[in-house]
Simulated assay, not measured.
Amino acid sequence: MTSMSTVACKQAQVQPLMNFRGGLNMESIYHRRDKVVFVVGATGTGKSRLAIDLAVRFRGEVVNSDKIQVHKGLDTITNKVTEEECRGVTHHLLGIAAPDSEFTAVDFRRCALLAIESILARGRLPIIAGGSNSFIDALVNGGPEVRSRYDCCFFWVDVSMPVLHSFVSRRVDRMVESGLVEEVRSVYHPGADNSKGIKRAIGVSEMEQYLSSESTADDRTRAKLLEEAVESIKVNTCALARRQLEKIQSLSSNWAGDMNRIDATEVFLKEGKETDEAWARLVAGPCTILLYKFLYGQDPMAAMLSTDTSHDVTIGKLVSVSIPMIVVAATTTRV
Rank of each mutant, 00 (worst) to 15 (best):
E61H: 11
E274T: 00
V267F: 13
V157D: 10
W279E: 13
P300K: 01
R122V: 00
L251F: 03
E117W: 05
A223P: 03
R109Q: 15
V313F: 11
S186E: 10
L120E: 04
I77E: 05
L295Q: 01
F135D: 02
L226V: 03
T333H: 12
A192L: 04
R242T: 02
G60I: 03
V335T: 02
L282T: 01
F135W: 11
H311Q: 14
S232H: 09
A241P: 06
R200E: 15
C153G: 01
R122S: 07
A217R: 13
I52P: 06
G257K: 01
A51V: 00
G88E: 10
S306F: 06
G73W: 13
S252N: 00
E102F: 01
W255H: 01
V56A: 05
F155H: 02
A51T: 01
Y188E: 00
S320P: 00
A192P: 01
E274P: 08
M1S: 09
L251D: 13
L17Y: 04
E231W: 11
K72S: 12
V106R: 12
N19F: 10
S169T: 10
L113C: 05
A284M: 07
Q298C: 13
A217F: 11
K234M: 05
T331W: 10
M207E: 09
A239M: 06
L291T: 00
N254D: 10
L93R: 04
T314E: 08
A42H: 07
G142D: 07
I326V: 10
Y150A: 02
V267G: 13
R242D: 09
R149Y: 09
G22E: 11
Q298E: 12
R171P: 06
A241T: 01
G73D: 13
T275D: 10
R109L: 12
E182R: 08
T90M: 14
R261I: 05
V187C: 14
T82D: 12
G203W: 14
K224G: 14
Y30A: 03
Q13V: 01
L305M: 06
A280E: 14
G142Q: 03
H92P: 04
V106G: 15
M259S: 02
V230K: 13
S306W: 06
A302R: 04
F268Q: 10
M161A: 10
S306P: 03
Y150P: 05
L211V: 03
S169Y: 10
L93I: 13
L269W: 07
R21T: 06
L240T: 06
D276W: 08
G95A: 05
S306K: 07
L125F: 09
R220H: 13
C287D: 00
S252Y: 00
M301I: 02
L94V: 00
S252T: 00
V159G: 15
K317D: 10
N19C: 09
K80H: 07
K47P: 09
G95K: 03
Q13W: 01
G44D: 09
Y210W: 14
A105N: 11
V14W: 02
T309K: 08
G197F: 12
S212A: 15
C111T: 07
F135K: 08
I262R: 14
A12S: 12
F58L: 01
E274V: 00
M207T: 04
